[in-house]
Design a binder for these strands. Sequence first.
DNA 1: TTCAGAGTTCGACATGTTTCGAACATAGAA
DNA 2: TTCTATGTTCGAAACATGTCGAACTCTGAA
Lengths: 117, 117
Amino acid sequence: MSNSETDNPAPATPVSETFFQDRAKQFKALSNPHRLRIFMTLAGCLEPGCVMESDVDHYENCQREFSEQLQLAPSTVSHHFKELRNAGLVHMERQGKRVLVWIDADTVKALRSVLGG
Amino acid sequence: MSNSETDNPAPATPVSETFFQDRAKQFKALSNPHRLRIFMTLAGCLEPGCVMESDVDHYENCQREFSEQLQLAPSTVSHHFKELRNAGLVHMERQGKRVLVWIDADTVKALRSVLGG
DNA sequence: TTCAGAGTTCGACATGTTTCGAACATAGAA
DNA sequence: TTCTATGTTCGAAACATGTCGAACTCTGAA
């Protein structure tokens, strides 16, 4: 996935086809209520006064917890995480028995700029 | 569609199911490259230095133009506009022969807040 | 080495999305 | 009224998505 336009809130015309494809794919990753809930939980945005700085707060072993909270099969949660990763919104890293997960701040920033932020 | 949480960037826990459904539906409206292009064109965000104030700049008769630009059948463009309207992102109003179109700034703001804006 | 815990991959099924063309509705102009 | 331009609705086809259970991998503990 190209990130060449990530840092440009107002890219020069004409905007490439890749730009729309990448952003659309990222919005699609957020277009399912379950995935959106996962994303916002990871982003720490479900509490009042929260701030999105998720590359600092890493979550551990969260898939099992989401599986219970959302009442979904583990394989389904795994699928949703894959979608979030493929879109470039979420990163995962194995550390022994545990798995760390965090949000890609640059990608989120790029999406925000599409919304005029 | 409920907009009760639109103005709250950091809603109190627990976040309602409706919140995720509404936001997910709005992200879904932006999850197609063609619709995203339409949205950004309406938002005037395809030029350098643009600002999103689309409730000021109304577009006229745009469906026909998008139909040509995107190489899609008029019925397909109409369908995409319907999706954007159903998500609450876009408004349309007939004025005689012409049709005015504009972006719902509040909905966009609500989406931006999900991304930590 | 065997076991248990966390996540992945696969195949299957039901449902939703994207797209088209054809037929329709509506408003102004000839 | 008839014509033209714009947008809508419908049915159909191709394709994508969400979900599950079963079988799998990988890692650390007993």
